[in-house]
Simulated assay, not measured.
Amino acid sequence: MTFPSSAAGSEPRFDVLLPYYGDVTQMQDAVRSVLAQSGDDWRLTVVDDGQEPSVPGWFEALGDPRVRYFRNERNLGVTGNFNRCLELATAEYLVMMGCDDLMHPNYLTVVRRAVDANPGVGMVQPGVKVIDGAGRETDTLADSVKRRLYAPKNPGPSVLGGEELAAGLLRGNWLYFPSICWRSDAVKPIGFRADLGVIQDLALVMDLLVAGERLALEPEVCFSYRRHAESESSAKAFTGARFAEARRFFLETADRVEALGWTQAAKAARHHFSTRLHALTLVPTALRLGHRDGARTLTGFALGPARR
């Protein structure tokens, strides 16, 4: 099922891609936040990976020529839908927005300023605030750690890249993936790894840094990232499976960047302190909910040897 844009004119400069699955109301709020952007140099593409019966009709009634809507014939999963969105992107730059996040009205203004000031930059990380499931501004432990321990301190507009940025992100990923604007011709040939289900965003960033791409920082806040509470009812959250994937990625990456002579980045990847800390914070809840095997797995990941 497809409702393509009928807008005439030249190719947009920005493709806003919205891979959708889940809450209908939050998705609609996300769409409205994109429609509030200034300028006529952007297009919104929604790729629906779900089966909510009301969604196609809502987009058809929207009738906005700046919006394309596609529904997948079969469920592709998170990474598969990300790659489907990339296939549909043709603009110079793209944003892979979360379907429960919100652009502020100044988002594209901030991003335009960054790409105009830094021609050819591969990624733009604008300023972000964090909201909870109800839309209230919040400051979780994860975000506080990102800001205080890993993110650049008091940055103005700046450009980062190479081993320094790689090492910092491998110590602790302080980026907010759904808020990033990417240069399409850098991202599309790489895509998202099908063998990763949780850490595919950091994997893409590392691929770009190894290829020589740079990241522009624009600290003006223009995006709300929604942080949902960990679901205590989900046993999967406490099995440690996500951390097994993370360990594999970090150790593979350590070998890869060491071959480039990036010794500090390789050391950061082998230790991967931030993901170990995350695993350790889940142990008390796993024990309280009776997931003893999961608690042992999480503890082993957090406290076990860093190297193979």
Rank of each mutant, 00 (worst) to 15 (best):
S33C: 08
K267A: 14
A265T: 09
V187K: 00
F59W: 11
M123A: 10
Q125R: 07
A186Q: 06
I180Y: 06
D293V: 06
N81Q: 08
V34H: 06
C222V: 09
A254V: 02
A151H: 00
A237R: 15
D201M: 13
V205F: 01
K188I: 12
V283M: 13
T285H: 00
G57E: 13
V210W: 03
L287A: 08
F301T: 08
G120W: 12
F238S: 05
A134H: 15
P178W: 02
A61L: 06
R247K: 11
T140R: 14
Y225S: 06
R307F: 14
N81R: 14
C222T: 00
A237V: 09
Q37S: 12
L175M: 10
A265K: 00
R296V: 12
P126E: 03
H272W: 04
P189N: 09
S5K: 05
L86W: 01
K267Q: 09
A8H: 07
L17M: 14
M96N: 08
V115K: 11
F249A: 12
L282K: 13
V198M: 01
L204P: 03
E258Q: 10
E213P: 05
L208K: 02
G240I: 08
Y225W: 11
K129C: 10
Y225V: 01
D207P: 04
F192I: 00
G77V: 04
G50C: 05
H271I: 13
G162A: 08
R183I: 03
S234L: 07
I199W: 03
V47G: 06
A142E: 15
V130I: 15
Y150S: 03
M206G: 00
G290I: 04
Y225F: 15
Q26D: 09
G212S: 02
N118W: 14
E213A: 15
V34Y: 00
P219G: 08
D48V: 06
L86E: 11
L141M: 06
G77L: 12
T299Q: 09
Q200K: 13
A229S: 10
L303H: 15
V24W: 15
R214F: 01
Y21P: 03
C181K: 03
G304H: 04
L86D: 02
E220P: 03
R66S: 07
F238C: 02
R248L: 05
E258I: 01
E163C: 05
L202T: 12
A266E: 06
L94P: 06
G120I: 15
L260A: 07
T90P: 11
R288T: 05
E11S: 12
T297A: 13
D29E: 13
